[in-house]
């Protein structure tokens, strides 16, 4: 199965829900509104996409939004296993809140916790929203947001070598 066929299946499943389709190389994603996300996700799950591969959040600082995409695929339906479909939404950077999809895909649980600590996105109704990898001090800085800058050193060195 290729992405075009997968697109058809997903569009069928999502009929009635307004979705923006974006294609990348190796995946296809559907961006829906925050309100429709849970509904869209449940329909995708019914269509056979049974686990979350990746919960990817990208911080578009210039546009003032986070794009949150659940990349899902299938284990039990072997036809669908070859494609990666994203279902996602966009939330504003200030006060990012969105419904959790843990009750749709249990496999998203730890990744939602990860997103929570790295981006500060609050998943409402998540059963166990705690820090996963970071310490509270670091998590407060929301390290994966674009405001947090890790500086690389310049190639020219000003201090003399010591040895």
């Amino acid at each position: 199965m290729d992405l075009a066929q997968a697109r058809k299946i997903v569009e069928e499943a999502l009929s009635g829900i307004e979705a923006r389709v974006e294609e990348g190389r190796g995946f296809i994603e559907f961006i829906v509104s925050k309100e429709n996300l849970v509904e869209a996700a449940s329909r995708l799950k019914k269509a056979g996409f049974d686990h979350v591969k990746s919960l990817t959040v990208v911080d578009y600082k210039a546009e003032g939004k986070f794009k949150i995409v659940y990349y899902v695929s299938s284990y039990l339906n072997e036809d669908l296993a070859g494609v990666i479909v994203g279902i996602g939404t966009e939330v504003p950077r200030d006060n990012p809140k969105m419904p959790t999809l843990v009750y749709v895909w249990r496999s998203a649980e730890f990744q939602e916790r990860e997103v929570f600590e790295f981006f500060g996105i609050d998943f409402e109704d998540h059963p166990d929203l705690r820090l996963l990898l970071l310490t509270p001090q670091v998590a407060e800085k929301r390290p994966l947001r674009k405001d947090f800058i890790v500086k690389e050193e310049p190639i020219i060195r000003t201090t003399p070598p010591t040895g």
Binding site: D50, Y75, W105
Partner: peptide, 9 residues
């Protein structure tokens, strides 16, 4: 079980 394995991803 298989179903749970898929569910837990």
């Amino acid at each position: 079980p298989k179903k749970i394995a898929a569910e837990l991803g």
